[in-house]
Amino acid sequence: MRSAERRLSAAGAALLVATSSDPEHPAGNVADGRSDTFWTTTGMFPQEFIIGFPERVTISRVAIQCYLVRTLRIERSVSKDPVDFEECIEKDLQHTEGQLQMEEFPLPAFQATHLRFIIKSAFDHFVSVHRVIAEGTAEDT
């Protein structure tokens, strides 16, 4: 798992955009490989963030660690720019009082240049996203 994550970060996976920002809990925290740092949403839903890869990758596993998220939708794009997204999965998460939601998404391997996470609704006014794991390999070019 770790090596796969390293491969992605070495490949330059980066957070491109997010709808909320608290400078103390920036969205970059979702992609730093740590569970103790997090991104907070700061208001009304839906809220989203987009992670970009510098080139097309094949993703074999997607997981998220978050709190108070109810409905989550994941989309992917294979375009050079973050456009033309299509749905991968939409799921209602269980509320886990006092502990992180650890959610694995059962997806067949797919290609992407961008991943978009849309939090459509929540169990409270605000949610936190602590970590996003996208394991995969860069395509040989």
Partner: peptide
Amino acid sequence: YKEKVEIFHSLA
């Protein structure tokens, strides 16, 4: 919001 952020901190 402040209360919620405190809770988020306590989760990790």
